[in-house]
């Protein structure tokens, strides 16, 4: 089963997303940027679902840390702020979702990214 790391500071969203994804994926939840990086270091993931607004480390910085850390992994960013979404896409996020989105939209994006061939490692 493919493994997804979900990072969102809102417990209810995190919990519901975990429940919804659980039948198809193995889900690990993180409530802040520090937890996210700790989990990434601990085990391999097939996809990261990242809320841009998080305590301790904002999503944009987590995105940069994932890239500079050498993890080659598809990233979907989520936010209620469209300007931040656009910026994150410019910085190399693979997909985005504007909150409040419907779950099937997310499902479709995850399926597409996970089925896609792995992306080439970032240029050193």
């Amino acid at each position: 089963m493919k493994r997804i790391l979900v990072a969102d500071d809102d417990p209810a969203i995190l919990d519901a997303l975990s429940t919804l994804l659980a039948p198809s994926y193995e889900v690990v939840a993180a409530r802040n940027g520090e937890d996210l990086l700790r989990e990434l270091a601990r085990q391999r993931f097939d996809l990261v679902l990242l809320d841009l607004r998080m305590p301790l480390m904002v999503g944009e910085n987590a995105l940069a840390a994932i890239q500079t850390g050498g993890w080659v992994i598809p990233i979907i960013v989520m936010s209620g702020n469209r300007a931040r979404i656009e910026e994150a896409m410019r910085r190399g996020a693979d997909e985005s979702l504007a909150k409040p989105f419907a779950f099937p939209e997310l499902e479709e994006k995850i399926a597409r990214l996970i089925a896609a061939p792995p992306k080439p490692p970032p240029a050193a």
Binding site: I13, L20, R53, K99, P100, A102
Partner: peptide, 21 residues
């Protein structure tokens, strides 16, 4: 405030989806 209101809306959408499924 706009951003703040989106968070419970997102949570509600996900919770309703859990019930539906």
């Amino acid at each position: 405030i706009a951003h703040e209101l989106r968070t419970p809306l997102q949570a509600l959408r996900m919770l309703v989806e859990v019930v539906r499924r």
